[in-house]
Amino acid sequence: MSATTQEARRGSGPARAPRAAAPRRGFAPRGMVWLVWRQHRATFLVMLGGTVLATAALLYKGVYVHEAVAAVDGGDPTPGDDATVADAYSALQAYGAALAGLPFLVGAFVGAPLFAGDLESGTAKLVGVQSRSRTEWVATKLAVAALFSALAAGAMGAALHYYRAPLVEHDASQADFTLSNSFDSTGPVAVVLVLIGLLVGATVGLLFRRMLPSMVVTLVSLYVLNFAWELARMAFARLETVTTGGGRFGDDDRPRIPRDAVEIDLSYLRSDGSLTGWSTCVNAENGPACLREDGVVGWAVDYMPYSHFGAMQWTAAAALTGALLLIGVVTAYAARRTLR
C-alpha cells in the first residue's frame, strides 16, 4: 500500500521557492479586473464598438439637423433643409425607440449571462476557490459591466440629445421629449435605466443559474418594470398652465404654448376656477350652450417647456437610483444565497 506515496515522501526535499512571473508593464488591467475583462471582452468590445458607431452617426447626422433647422428658423431654407428637418423628426422617433431598448438588451445579453454563465459552466467554482473573495468577484463583474453599460447609455444618450435639441426647439409637438423613446433614452435617466437592466439581469442570472431561462425572465421582468415606469414617469414633471377666459372656448381660442413645449393636458376652465375635461358636452346638440350652462369660460392647458426637461431628468434619475439601490439589495441577497 501507499508505496508510491511513501517512496515519493522519502525523497522529499525542501519546498521550492515560488518563482514569480515576468514583470508587467503599462496600465493593463490586473487581478480580478483582468479576469472579468478577459472573460467578457467580446461582449464589452461589441458594446464599445456599437457605442462609438452609434454615437458618431448621431453626432454626424445631428450636425446636418442643426444646420437645417437654423436655416428653416432663419427663414431662408433650401428645399433640402425642409426635407432634412421633416425626415429628422421621423428618424428621431426611431433612434429614440432603439436607445430606449438598451436596458432590455443590456439586461438580457450582458446582465443575465454575467453570473448565470459561470454558474452553468461551473467556472463560478473555479474562481470561488482562488485566494480572492467571491464578494470581490461579484462586485468587480458588476462594476466593469456597469462601467461599459453606463458609458454606452451616456454617450449615445448625449448624442441623441444633441440630435434632438434643435428639433424640440423648432417644434416640440413633433418631438415629444416626455415620451419613453425620448425621455428614457437620454441624460442621467438613460444611464440609470440601463444600470437597472444590468442589475435585474445579473440578479435573475444568480437566482436561475442558467443562461437561457435567465435571459427570458430578465426580459419579462424588465417589461413589467418598464410598464410601471411608464405610469410613474410624468409624476416627476413640473408643468406650467396657461388659461383663457371671457367665454371664449372655441377651437381657435385655445391658448398658445411655447413652440419648444409639449402639451400635457387640455381642459375647459369654469368660472369658479375648476377644470372639466375637454370632452365635456361633446355629444350635446348645442355644444357651446351646454358648456356655458356648465359654467365653462375658457381653456386651460398644462404644458411642459423644454427648459424643465433637465430638472425632470435629474429628479427622475434620483428616484430611479433609489430603485436601483433596492434592486442592488436583492442582488446582494441573491449572490449570498447562490454562491454560498
Binding site: 515560488p18 479576469l35 485566494s131 480572492r132
Partner: peptide, 10 residues
C-alpha cells in the same frame, strides 16, 4: 492574477 503566492514556473 488571483493568487498572491502563485508559482508561475511550477
Amino acid at each position: 492574477e488571483l493568487n498572491p503566492g502563485w508559482d508561475q514556473a511550477l
